[in-house]
């Protein structure tokens, strides 16, 4: 249960990633936009000689991108051989998990359910543990956004 978590904020909500999933935290400076890509794909950024796909976590979950400011830094994760940079509101701290990820009654809300691993208790309080592989898939297509 002493798993390390990286605490962050997405669309104003406190959440966490498994420290094992996060390879590094980089400054995302220049982004090459990708025409015709889904909205949550901001573009490509370079990390050393590697191209990262930059994911806007707010739109990937289905939240409004304009309502929440983000900082320059992004978490680098690797899923199925591809590297992604996750653009977050902020990256906060590292904390130790005090419990395993668990469901909560009523769920986390329509948009958040599919990216959620569950709730985890930490020293800093309860946080939502994010499943990186689902996050980079983008929002579920469940009718017009803005509802729920």
């Amino acid at each position: 249960m002493s798993e390390l978590l990286v605490l962050a904020e997405i669309a104003g909500r406190r959440c966490a990633f498994r420290a094992n999933d996060v390879q590094s935290v980089i400054d995302i400076s220049e982004i090459t936009p990708v025409p015709r890509a889904p909205e949550f794909v901001l573009g490509l950024a370079a990390m050393r000689s590697q191209a990262l796909t930059v994911i806007d976590c707010r739109t990937a979950i289905g939240e409004d991108a304009d309502a929440f400011p983000t900082d320059q830094r992004g978490a680098v994760v690797r899923v199925e051989g591809h590297s992604y940079a996750l653009k977050l509101d902020m990256i906060d701290d590292v904390a130790t998990a005090r419990s395993a990820a668990g469901e909560i009654a009523g769920g986390f809300g329509k948009k958040w359910n599919h990216v959620a691993c569950g709730m985890v208790e930490t020293d800093r309080g309860a946080v939502l543990l994010i499943d990186v592989a689902s996050l980079i898939e983008g929002p579920r297509e469940t009718g017009p956004s803005g509802l729920s």
Partner: peptide, 19 residues
């Protein structure tokens, strides 16, 4: 040429990325 992430490949417009 490096491969692209699946979410980018889906548009079927790009074959890869290069620096």
């Amino acid at each position: 040429v490096k491969p692209l992430a699946p979410s980018v490949m889906r548009s079927r417009t790009f074959a890869g990325s290069t620096l």
